[in-house]
Write a protein that binds this DNA or RNA. Structure first.
Lengths: 150, 150
DNA sequence: TTCTATGCAAATTCTTTGCATATCT
DNA sequence: AGATATGCAAAGAATTTGCATAGAA
């Protein structure tokens, strides 16, 4: 069940096909990096990893590909409240949108999903009258572990 | 009841004094701009407006002052989901934190505050176990007016 | 075959920094 | 007086763009 198995194309590749953008080798590499990432990556890191899959991948292509994926709402862009520097981080938008809660002591990020977030956003929509299509909620605070080890 | 009335010092100036950072003329100008702003300003715009109050204000000072105000949690930094370009926007954190809901059609921003946001964040804190100190929630969608005029 | 995406390098834009001087407290 | 903030100019990052070529549909 590899990510390259054509019968099980990745969410991102599928989304790209659906939107009639071309599936090229650099894009395949970048997408694979994003889908295999365990944490949040910046452009530098994505480029580095993508080069290991396809050495020809250029940083400019990474920017262009990320723009494309953002426009299609296939990836989200975060900045983790700048608690880790001024870079931007990217993640696949699979399994619905979610919040990011960053511990200001240890830097760990947890990602609440599902009903909690849905009801939160529903009530926001109700209060403003908007139809809300996407959102980004990033919060900073102290995680239970750090709170305990005082 | 002017913003310069020493008896009614601005929230930001008060906050600065409380934190023992110096109240200088450039900082006064920048703070006045932030407090009088009706909308969200980027660094360029803040610099321009501050120069009208104190012509000597330099862009570098604006960056340094905003950093200082962010560190003291007196202003918040937004990017409005990059729906208006890649710049950063700043606003005074008065009257508590709040969300920003941006209409993807007309660009208008509304700012839900108060109980809705508080309960939202409370539940997030409960779900993760974090003590949440600050947050940023930006959402994109279609506002009622735009929805109506289809 | 036609249209889109890429690499590359240069240009832009955004932000930070060193340092001598000016300014707050 | 003593510590901190400022202006300026230059450096450093981050991101975008023009263009000829390569590659997907």
């Amino acid at each position: 069940m590899s990510h390259r198995d054509p019968a099980h194309a990745s969410i991102l590749i599928e989304g790209m096909r659906k939107n009639r953008v071309r599936v090229t080798s650099p894009r395949r590499a970048i997408v694979q990096v994003l889908e295999e990432a365990e944490d949040h990556l910046d452009v530098e890191e994505i480029t580095e990893r993508a080069k290991k899959i396809d050495a020809s991948v250029h940083r400019a292509t990474v920017y262009r590909t990320l723009d494309m994926l953002k426009r299609l709402h296939l990836v989200d862009e975060l900045d983790l409240l700048h608690l880790r520097g001024d870079r931007h981080y990217y993640e696949v938008r699979s399994g619905g949108q979610h919040a990011h809660v960053i511990c200001t002591r240890c830097g760990k990020v947890v990602e609440p999903r599902g009903e909690i977030m849905a009801s939160c956003i529903d009530r926001l929509a109700e209060a403003t009258g908007h139809r809300i299509d996407f959102y980004r909620l990033e919060a900073g605070g102290v995680c239970p572990d750090c709170e305990a080890s005082d």
